[in-house]
Structure formats: C-alpha cells, structure tokens
Write a protein that binds this DNA or RNA. Sequence first.
RNA 1: GGCGCCGUGGCCGAGUGGCUAGGCAACGGAUUGCAAAUCCGUGUACCGCGGUUCAAUUCCGCGCGGCGCCUCCA
Length: 477
Amino acid sequence: MPLRFHNTLTRRVEEFRPANPPRVTVYACGPTVYGPAHIGNWSSFLFFDVVVRWLRLRGYQVRFVTNVTDVEDKTIRDSRAAGETLSAFTRRWEADYLEGRRLFGCVVADAFPRATEHVDGMRDMIQALLDRGHAYVAEDGIYFRVASFPTYGELANLSAESLRAGASGRVRADEYEKEHVSDFVLWKAWDPAADGDVAWTPTFTVDGQPRTMKGRPGWHIECSVMIRALLGDQIDLHLGGEDLKFPHHQNELAQSEAATGKQPFVRHWMHRRHLLVDGAKMSKSKKNFYTVQDLVARAGPSGPRAFRYLVATAHYGTPIDFTWAGLEAAAATLRNLADARVRLAKAAGAAAPAKAGAVAQARAAFEARMDDDLDTPGAMAAVQEWLHEANKALAAGTLPAADAAAGVALLDEADEALGLALRPTRTLSADEQALVDARMAARRAKQWGEADRLRAELASRGVLVKDSKDGQEISFS
RNA sequence: GGCGCCGUGGCCGAGUGGCUAGGCAACGGAUUGCAAAUCCGUGUACCGCGGUUCAAUUCCGCGCGGCGCCUCCA
C-alpha cells in the first residue's frame, strides 16, 4: 500500500512519490536558538520525528536534515542584550534543544546544520539570483524580486492582490528601499546599532563590477542554502510548523527554484498545525509556554513520552489543545500500554510471533492507518481494539504464545513509529533488586505491612510493583 | 477586507450517507491481603435552523460560536 500524505501545495492528500526510491530526502525547519523551545515547538519537532520514523519503518532510506537557525534578528538582539557573543549565546540554546531531543527520544538527524556555517553558500545563491535577474541591490540590502516569480503566494494560497493589501498590519510601510512590498531581503546590510559585531563581508558581482556588502543573511535564504548543501537542489519532503508556510517556505521555494532553475524544489510539503494551550495560541513572544523541563517537573521522567502520546492522539492536520489534564490522561494510557507489553512478553515466552490471525489483522490496520496520512489516532485505536481482545484471552488463559509474541511485536512497532518508550528504559539496580526480593519474602510470610512499606519505598525510587498470580510485575515511572 | 480550518457523549479525539472507532475519567460488579492492572455491565454523542435524499452526524445553504494565516512566530 502506498504512502499518502497531505501536500500543502496542492491542498490534497496524495501519494508520496520520492524522486529516487527507496532513497528519501527530508528537510525540516528547526528552531531559532534564542531561548528554550516550548511544547508548541516540540509538537512540530515530534511530528517531523514521526514522519521520519514511519518512512524508515516502511523501508525507505531516509536522509534527514534539520537545521538550527543561529543568526537572525532575535538571536542578535538577545545575545547582545545578554552581553554574550552570538556564537556563545546560540550554542547554549542549541545545547538545550539537543538535550530536549534526547529527553523526547527523537531520532538523531543525519545533519544538524547551523546557518552561520553556510554563509559562503548563501553568497553563491544570492549571486545566482542577481545574475538571473531575480534579485536587486538596494542601500539597505539585497532583495528578492517577487514580481520575477509568477507563482509567488501559491504555497499559502495567497493571491498577489491579497499580498499587496497587507491587511495583517505587519507590513512596514516605510521600507521604501524595496521595489515592491512583497519583496523580501536576501542579505541585510550591516546596521552597526543593531548588529554590533555580527557581520560577514561577501563580495558580489553587480553589473560586472565587484561589490562587497558587509552584512548578514536574511532568514529565508538560510534554509534554501542548507538544503542545497546537504540534500541537493531538489528534495522529496519538506516539513514545518503551519506558520512557516508563509512567508518562510514560500520564499524558500521562490529563491531555490529561481536560483537553480529546477522544479520542483520540493516534491511534497507537509505542515503541522499549531498546539494551543487551554485554547489559546502560544509563542515565544508570550509567556504562556511550557518547556520539556516543565513536563519532567510536573509529570516525572516519563512526562516527555506522555506528551508524545498526547500529540499522537490528534491528527497532525488539526490543532491540538494542550492541558495538564490531557497530559495525565495520556500518561495513564501509556502506563497501561507498557503494562500490557509486560504481560504479553511473559505470555509469549520464547515463541515465534504468529503471522496470521487477529494480531496480523490489527497490525495491518495499524499500518494502513499510518500509511494514510499518518492517522496516529486511528492507528492506536487498532492497537487498543486488539489489546482488549488479547486481555480477555489472557485472562482466560487461551492466548496462544505465538499471538502474544506477535502482540509484543505490534506494540514494539507502534513504539518505534511514535517513540513511546514502552519497553523498560532501565533495569533494577542491585539495591532495588534486594528490595524487590525482600518484598517477595514479606508477601510469602503474609507480612502485609512490610510488603506495603517496601512497595512504597520502591515507588519513591521510580520502581512500580504490581502483584499478579505469577509474582511481582516491575515497571518504571 | 482576503484565504482557510473547526464545532462529536464528563474530557480528549477518529470516522462514515444507512452496519453504535478508540482512549482517559466516573459508577456498579468479578478478581485481589491491600493497591494497581484486567474482565463484565452502565451513558441511545454528533452546535442551531432549513434543504437534498427512502435515509444525514456525514452532502448543500444560512445562522451562531471558536481558531489560524495574510512578510521574518514551530
């Protein structure tokens, strides 16, 4: 069954056709490193992660690149305010971001390029745009000439007229250096008051004459150039948060196709809708945001994984409304799934997984849901439906070991696809094992007070103990 | 003003022109030293009003309500 994804450009769900299967090139816009990433950012990054995981599970050889934006207005402004060099400042927040990826269990990208390491490539692309008549030099920088790119606005379904209207009020009318209000900056001339010592001095050729322009790159050119450097002039899949559709991705598209003359720049665009908090939009410019550290502080070590499950309970094409109650519900579901895996693994023993029957059907349903535009809620429903039947059989003692083994494999596939960490993430330490053994002895001696005390002590160490007919079941919080 | 999305049982959330997704929470029962998990049972959900249809939660129109984007916010 082919993979079908919603394509932003056509606004339809269509078959995903990479140019050179089984190889797939994927680029996702990463964070601007000027502060901690909030859970809204993470909902997007986790979406990218699921896309990459699923492509790999489906046998594609994915080359995944996601960048770090370490030079633009806010990084310069805030690093200067902090009295740090741009590099020291952005590296600090980049480390915070990478730590977050670790806590969420994100796949390691094949490359994490930094914009500041690709300035030479930016010079080259801007030169190509100048040579081809798609860019022009003004006093305060070099601009992309939107009028030279007829389909401009297509990605966001915006017409030239609506762009001209600029009804959002965000267009600065005083930018008279530009030929057209929609033109966007490729290279910003140095502004000593705002930029301090952040500057490069590339030399361009303008009208046959060399011209050095001290300054720094515009935001949009950064991604175009990193894509070109690490994945090529044309890629299969480009991912981002919904806000990046316009202008950022539209500008990337225009620049790249105009500079290389190759179409399409991206075969398939996908965007994750925003996460809201208690029904309201969040952003770094407001104070209503939570970080991965907040998830850990309020929901424990498994908080980030519970958040992953929460995000997976909604399709990426619909906004998700974050609440702490919702996170707790997701955490409860995740615990139940992890417990189920323990029971099934025990029932499976060393049996080989069954290849047919209800489990196989559930697995096929799970995969079909994922293949159809990454319907994560539907995919998990297929797992839960089978699990309910399996629990019945398990209670009756009629679940074949081969089915239990296949059930473990199903849970592991869901785990692999969504990054849920259902498998125990650690083992018992010697001290903890001693407590578990002591509790077993206490139970055998019917010393219930001591058994309960030991269970509480283990819980305080993150070890959860449940009693069953076959003894104690261990899991970790 | 332009473009677009959404309104499903206590909460979250799929989906479909007729065959009651799923999860979490709640209540009763079984099981259990207790707890948890698990099992059995319990709630006749589809914003309102019209229309199309044998039949609409699902299609169309209007209304009400919420939300996003429209030049550098994931």
